[in-house]
């Protein structure tokens, strides 16, 4: 759900009805089947372009909005080293947003259009960032587990078919490993610290458990499928597969610290599949449609930044310059 590959009913229908030039389509699909990348100047199906823009743009917004809950704690970091690490991480996240906007731009949507769609609510961003960071322990949990979930998603997507997106993701994944490490370090310090430190960590895990299960999107049985997105290597793994991979990697790393998850049904079955209680998919839908604890604040802050910074951008602008789509 970082950059969601879930299709709306309408998109799914169009996906199967849009007619493309059969010869070009065959060459395009053959290229992808050979494991080659698609570059911006290449011919591509209308729906391929459309779905990629939606997904990369959503991913970019997630990076930018994701910096907000963490940014909250920069001024209140518990010590100087943690403060430096958090500043570096937040700067990385904003940088990731920039890289991803560039990748989406190569498909023909300008950065300004994307910004407008974020501010108007037309474009979505990851649901997980509509929840607040109440204590310093939230920063630890976000750094370790939200970034951990993002890495699962981004590593898989970096094997996709669109060249500029893959290149951006490779850069991003390299930086994410630092986010994960410092997040783990932070979690371990709290877990092995005082009673109070353990208590705020447990409380943060309790609150982030369901949003983390929501992170990869609705269960496969509930989401509109597209064989084509798989064939075109836009979607590379199902929501359930990614979620399972995440649980498999990170649940043990929390349990070994004698911290628990607020779900008695969370366990791995004999087939290696993690089982868990229904994380309330209605809540997921409510929050994604605007009714989460922080949706209004996130957008208000972005709007404020947009308007307050406008005079600077306008002063810098050269009206004779025409917009240029990035090359790659």
């Amino acid at each position: 759900m970082y950059g969601s590959t879930n299709l709306s009913e309408e998109d799914a229908r169009r996906m199967n009805t849009t007619v493309e030039d059969p010869e070009k389509l065959e060459a395009f699909e053959a290229r992808i089947a050979r494991g080659e990348k698609i570059e911006p100047q290449d011919w591509m199906p209308v729906e391929y372009r459309k779905q990629l823009i939606r997904m990369i743009e959503q991913h970019a917004h997630s990076e930018i909005v994701g910096a907000l809950p963490e940014g909250t704690w920069i001024t209140r970091a518990p010590n100087f080293r943690r403060k430096l690490a958090l500043i570096a991480k937040v700067q990385d996240e904003v940088g990731h947003g920039q890289l991803l906007y560039s990748a989406a731009e190569t498909l023909g949507k300008t950065r300004e259009e994307m910004m407008n769609d974020l501010l108007s609510g037309k474009s979505k961003y990851s649901n997980v960032f509509n929840y607040p960071a109440n204590t310093w322990a939230d920063i630890a949990v976000i750094g370790f587990l939200v970034d951990g979930a993002a890495i699962v998603n981004q590593t898989i997507n970096s094997k996709g078919s669109y060249g500029p997106y893959c290149r951006a993701l490779e850069r991003i994944c390299y930086e994410e490993s630092f986010h994960l490490k410092q997040g783990h370090d932070n979690v371990v310090y709290l877990a092995t610290g005082t009673k109070h430190q353990r208590a705020i960590l447990q409380d943060a895990i309790n609150r982030w458990y369901r949003p983390l299960l929501h992170f990869f999107g609705p269960p496969d049985v509930q989401s509109a499928h597209s064989e084509k997105l798989m064939k075109w290597k836009v979607k590379l793994a199902s929501n359930d597969d990614m979620r399972n991979q995440f649980l498999d990697m990170y649940v043990p790393k929390i349990l070994e610290l004698d911290i628990t998850f607020p779900d008695p049904n969370l366990k791995k079955n004999e087939d290696g599949i993690w089982e868990f209680s229904d994380p309330d998919w209605d809540e997921f839908k409510r929050v994604i449609n605007g009714d989460g604890p922080c949706n209004a604040e996130r957008i208000a802050v972005r709007k404020f930044a947009e308007e307050a910074g406008r005079w600077v951008r306008q002063a810098l602008m050269n009206p004779s310059e025409k917009y240029q789509v990035p090359l790659a």
Partner: peptide
């Protein structure tokens, strides 16, 4: 709006009503 972020609480949101990126406000691509 009451935020956990003291910096957000200091913003005067009434001053920002036009939260839209004006078209043709893009800078040069390098």
């Amino acid at each position: 709006m009451s935020s956990l972020d003291p910096r957000v609480n200091r913003l005067d949101f009434k001053k920002a009503t036009d939260g839209e990126v004006h078209t043709n406000s893009h800078l040069i691509t390098w």
